[in-house]
Amino acid sequence: MRTDRERISTRLLELNDHLAHRLLKGGALTGVTERRWREADAAITTLWRLFDAYQTVLDRAEELCAGRPGPEELEELTFLITGPSVKTPREDLPLERAGLLGDAGEHVTLAGALTRMSAAFDTATAVVAAADAAWSGLLPRLEAAEKAWQEARAHLAALVPPGAGAPPYGETPEIGRARRLERELDAARALVRGDPLSLVRDGHADTSGLDRLTGEIGALRAVLAEAVRLREGYGERRRELGGRVDEVAVAEEEAAALRARVVGRIANVSPPEVPRLSAALRERLAALDSLRERGRWAELARRAGELERSADDALRRVRAVRDSAGGLLDRRDELRGRLGAYRAKAARLGYAEDLRVSELHRRAHDLLWTAPCDLRAATAALAEYRRALGGEGAAR
């Protein structure tokens, strides 16, 4: 029994020192957690009171065993060990349930007291363990959200001076978004710290809400960080964007000139028109200055990113038209080169004086060197000339 007492004492002290127990005992609990903690706290109170009564009986039994117990002492010792010697703690009942004499409690054996203590301990540790598991999953996520929020708020403070509510700052979308996320973070903080058990699903902490909130705060933080960078380096960023728009304009002129050459030199083709996008891009570039003057840095950063992507897309589209048109001239030049190779082979094979072969060469040559060039007809004439020289393997 001494061993049992020591083990019980150790477990009670471990429970008392458990971090989750301290958080539950000192926290401002709500909801499911508050209800379950009331039950657990009552069980712990009962457990300690019952343990005190249990120890009192053991102390008396040890005292009797220390001497030479006579018949009366042996009878008492027997009663202490085997009889209903442990008085259970009186239940604290409300006035309407207590009656005139209140709850006098009852007496149980040492084994019965141990059974009741075990049940109370299980009730208490179940709640403490559940809260500990919930907080273990939730608190790191809450800390991540709070860290992201602190960084986002620091960026926002760098963009909006304290107390700025009138133009040029006003209620920007980012300020409104930050206020909403701060309210959601406050609510999540209260729920995680005050009612973690309400977030347990199938035995595990449901962190999806915190993960979503952290993601939204992180996205806002990224937007605000980019806005801060843009404010600090707006001049350079604008010059860079202006350079990209200029590149699009130059590419448009080059593509238009090349298309005009193709239309004049290649017959029966209609290359795609060159998209004229640089003018609209310049208007969007100029609009950034207005946002700068109004202190709308986050919106400016977003539009600057969109403008950059639009300029890159415009450059790809213009170059695609240029390459499509240029491909027609490349095809004509390729056919010219092949014709020269075939003619050299004709000389090697002794066809230089062959009238039919010479006529086929002349026809292909005229088609390839006449503007506009009919590529389809020139390709057919070149194929016929090649067959006359010896088939598919000619002039490889």
Rank of each mutant, 00 (worst) to 15 (best):
L307D: 13
L224S: 14
R316Y: 03
E359H: 02
H361T: 05
I266A: 09
R294V: 00
A104H: 09
E143L: 13
A352G: 08
L300H: 06
L74N: 07
A341W: 07
R49P: 00
A124F: 06
E76D: 06
G170F: 03
H204C: 04
E308R: 15
G391K: 03
R189P: 00
E171Q: 11
E106I: 00
A144F: 08
R284D: 10
S324L: 14
D41L: 11
D59S: 13
R259T: 03
R177D: 09
R259C: 06
A124M: 03
G340C: 02
A378C: 01
V200M: 14
R362T: 12
S324V: 11
R193H: 13
H361I: 04
L288D: 10
P372E: 00
A287N: 04
V321K: 07
R265H: 02
D323P: 06
G102W: 04
A145S: 14
R5A: 15
R331Y: 08
P196I: 02
A43D: 02
G340H: 09
R244L: 15
D313F: 11
R201M: 08
T78F: 07
R284L: 07
P168N: 03
V86Y: 03
G233C: 11
P84T: 02
G326K: 05
L142N: 06
E226L: 09
R348Y: 01
P173F: 05
T123K: 12
A301D: 06
A133M: 11
G391Q: 04
M1P: 06
D354R: 02
P94E: 04
E299K: 01
L288A: 10
G31C: 01
D92C: 00
R322A: 13
F121P: 00
G305S: 13
T45H: 12
K87M: 11
E143Y: 11
T46S: 12
T78C: 06
N268L: 14
A320N: 04
Y385K: 04
S310V: 05
L307V: 12
T56M: 11
G264L: 13
A61E: 03
A188T: 03
R237Q: 13
D366P: 00
E392F: 09
A158H: 07
E171F: 08
D330Q: 14
V250C: 03
R90S: 15
Y342W: 01
